[in-house]
Amino acid sequence: MDILFYVAAVVAVLATALAITRRNAVHGLLYLIVSLLAVALIFFVVGAPFVAALEVIIYAGAIMVLFVFVMMLLNLGPQSADQERRWLPPGVWSGPLALAIVLFGELLYVIGSATLASTGAEIGPVEVGIALYGPYALGVEIASMLLLAGLVGAYHLGRRETERSGGG
């Protein structure tokens, strides 16, 4: 199982790096989807199949579809790739890269000092459900309120202004 984990991890890191560096927005999104699928596989391998399924359904299957949908409506042509090339010359990357290397070093240190807790017992959907509606019930309720607020907000923004147009 360890080899599966490492392969998926390498795919996830590579796909994420490619997602950042692609100039064509849709290609970048496709790499991001691959990265999410790789992360789902990691969840599955370490014994969290329920989270893995939700990752595929919600992130890869719903949210990213909306991203692709918007990209299609914008209809970005080759000129937008040129524009991005002008906005992001290679020199821009040096600052973030230096900071990221510092973080990466820290990450390596943390991983090196921690004991590897891989492939524990599998946590099935029933356990996840009991945890969500037991000790974490408050968190679930807060998240649902946040989503409701988003829903109401979207409805308000998308509302037709009937007052000014005089009905109809």
């Binding site: 849709v26 329920f50 893995a52 359904i57 579809v65 099935g124």
Partner: peptide
């Protein structure tokens, strides 16, 4: 026989959207 079999089906059918979306784009 996955213990998340039904969710796996839903996940795959939601990934199927990319086929038609990307084909058109």
């Amino acid at each position: 026989d996955l213990n998340i079999g039904l969710l796996f089906f839903l996940g795959m059918s939601s990934l199927g959207v990319y086929s038609v979306t990307l084909a058109g784009w």
